[in-house]
Design a protein around this nucleic acid. Sequence first.
DNA 1: CAGGACATGTAATTGGTTACATGATTGC
DNA 2: GCAATCATGTAACCAATTACATGTCCTG
Lengths: 181, 181
Amino acid sequence: MSLKNTILTSLIESEKSGYDIFRQFQNSLNYYWNASYQQIYKTLDTILEQGLVSVRTVKQEQKADKKLYSLTEKGIEELENWVHEPTSQQKTKNDLLVKLTLARKFGSAAIIKQLQQRLSEKENELLNYRKIERAYFTPKPSAETHIKNVTYYLALRNGITHCEVEINWLHESIDMLSSNQ
Amino acid sequence: MSLKNTILTSLIESEKSGYDIFRQFQNSLNYYWNASYQQIYKTLDTILEQGLVSVRTVKQEQKADKKLYSLTEKGIEELENWVHEPTSQQKTKNDLLVKLTLARKFGSAAIIKQLQQRLSEKENELLNYRKIERAYFTPKPSAETHIKNVTYYLALRNGITHCEVEINWLHESIDMLSSNQ
DNA sequence: CAGGACATGTAATTGGTTACATGATTGC
DNA sequence: GCAATCATGTAACCAATTACATGTCCTG
């Protein structure tokens, strides 16, 4: 379960509530991790039982109580071990490519529509990444930049470059299918 | 469950055994889908109950019996409906990017090792794709090419281009982390 | 006054992995 | 003789989604 380790990693920065972690996943982090809030709350329960995090409850006026989680020594050890373990790739599951092969059975009109939909999603995604890039990484980090910013920059670059090739591929595919109808 | 639809799609070509489908996933298909054989056998049971496929058992000399599955009318309808449904993106879960952010906590030596490991995996993957490209898609398909080959070619191109940017990103990341130690 | 952000959860179901289980053939 | 390929499955467990459930504050 790597959601566990992703949550622990997020808690290195500061103590956080389940909702804080959820928002972080939804915003800047969404090019490298994704989880629903139900999953996050459940996992927090589990790692609390395992002693990897501790919790303190903060009473808030006019808002529901907040449970702030922070890393324990055991949690830090867990993370350090995990860094050294082999890292397996996420298994590809690309519905769009499967549907693409169905074009010859059911015609390409429907699949072209799906590709165009995905194209507009990806274009939006890229705009967001570019916004983050401009705001936090101009000028581009160099060898002298603090390592924290370097790793964030590299993660963002990963999101950007994959997004770009996907957009190119979508254009190419839409063109080819359109001229082949 | 899109594994269901992926299996149905695979059965459009011809009737297949669970093992045939598994091999197809392992080989050429692995740039767009991935599943274990346990999952495939289980799903085949489910879609047989749902009437989306039919089965016939083939006795084989000197080998275990084979169960060959083929699409039913209902299965084809199911697929046609699925093509028109909105297609959601696979949720990103990138362990390597999470580990990358841990470099500032635990040092970059361990993470550089992980990046190099991934690099060699990706380089192998790319060589395989190139082999398929040379064998089946020279010269490159054009507007006149049969649609079947066009869709297969596009799926392969998707695998190749993503593999390439990942390799570039890995080089860039290893360089940047190394000079920042 | 409606919708979105904040804030936390439970329950049921489905999807996926890991371990267990068997047995023949073919090629090195 | 050992590993890989062919061929099929069960059982236990872990991961993830969907639906249900509640309540406040703030902004337009």
